[in-house]
Design a binder for these strands. Structure first.
Lengths: 211, 211
DNA sequence: TAGATTGTTAATCGATTAACAATC
DNA sequence: TAGATTGTTAATCGATTAACAATC
């Protein structure tokens, strides 16, 4: 609809706004000014207003600020949190199991329904009421349940092959924790989570500040 | 030493370069051009050269490119990967246990030595040879082992208190997976890992591309 | 009302890219 | 040598901030 491209920096700030606003809502606040939001996120108030104007139809009211409840609704909608989609986890090691056990992503629109692995030791078990199947059943499962999101927690070596299989079965988004670069068709979104990059940032900051 | 500030965008690319270069090294390659690196990372060749000139003392050689082995060494040094530091995990739930079980961060200079929790069910057990202690012992442990890094995988509500305790005991860097905003003294680096922000990015891209 | 706070336009700042001479 | 590839300077681009009129 001719909308201008929204910068990824703006998108990345949305969950932070959301987190702050949900907290404010729980404290019983109803309105918040851009300056208050700005302070909590270490960003300028103008930028907050600019960001909010992009995702929200509501206008802030001079003297009062923004109505928190509606803002929360708009940001959740923008981020797609209102629209729960099912996901599968491939690789039921420690991290994969953590995904099975964690329900928190439901608030973010993600519902993990099952996991897949090759290890006969764990295939057949379940975590948090969610079954671990053998990888040979992955493709049929994804197809029949019309799954759109796959979470990759397999070893590096297996990641590309699993991704290919997921894509062939209809997955359109892959959340990759395998810390390796993957290739996928253009219409599939791959988000590689590079925790060692974060760690590098932490370490780098520590070094820079202490010297 | 009067060095110019290095942008966090540059720092964030370093682990990506490193990953590509290590792969090239394993394939037996010895030299690589900035254009090849650029292609694998979807970034321009000029930017690669600029980034590399910041972290590396070696110069690229016209026609040949950069010597991979030395580049890998320089980037690892820049990121502090050569300098293993001990860390503790606080919160031994599913994610915390994943950290205990995962040895991969040793390549990034991080060595997890123990975990802490309050749950009597798991205190006293060990994962991957690493002991889970009661939180009451946290402070003494950190002090006596001179631990500098703490990984927070506790529930939101407990995060700030744990951080305060870690800081009081001498921790200088905190990797926070509790998805809540924390406050810490200026000299302490806190890196909050917001997986729901990543997830938002994935979901957002999926929506944008499919409409 | 007066003043706090908004939304928007123009200016600034910083990161990326284009252009190109230098080099092996 | 000729040509691939480098490092650097200047131009561009995009994101953030400053300034300020509008509004409740």
């Amino acid at each position: 609809m001719g909308k201008r491209e929204i910068s990824s920096a703006t998108i990345a700030r949305m969950p932070q706004y959301l987190r702050y606003l949900q907290g404010a809502l729980q404290r019983g606040e109803r309105y918040v000014s851009s300056a208050e939001i700005a302070k909590s996120i270490a960003v300028s108030a103008v930028l907050v207003r600019k960001d909010l104007s992009i995702v929200s139809s509501i206008e802030g009211r001079p003297r009062l600020g923004f109505e928190i409840r509606r803002l929360v609704g708009d940001i959740e909608k923008f981020l797609g949190y209102d629209n729960l989609s099912d996901a599968v986890v491939v690789g039921a090691g420690a991290l994969g199991k953590a995904f099975l056990g964690y329900e928190g992503f439901k608030n973010n629109g993600l519902n993990v329904v099952a996991a897949f692995d090759v290890d006969p030791e764990i295939v057949g078990k379940s975590v948090n009421g969610k079954q671990i199947y053998h990888v040979s059943q992955l493709s049929a499962f994804v197809r029949s349940r019309n799954i759109r999101i796959g979470i990759l927690t397999v070893p590096k070596g297996a990641a590309q092959a699993v991704l290919d299989e997921l894509v062939a079965a209809g997955v359109r988004g892959v959340w990759n924790f395998a810390a390796t670069d993957l290739t996928a068709p253009k219409e599939v979104v791959v988000k590689t989570e590079d925790l060692s990059a974060s760690l590098a940032f932490l370490a780098g900051e520590m070094i820079r500040r202490s010297i």
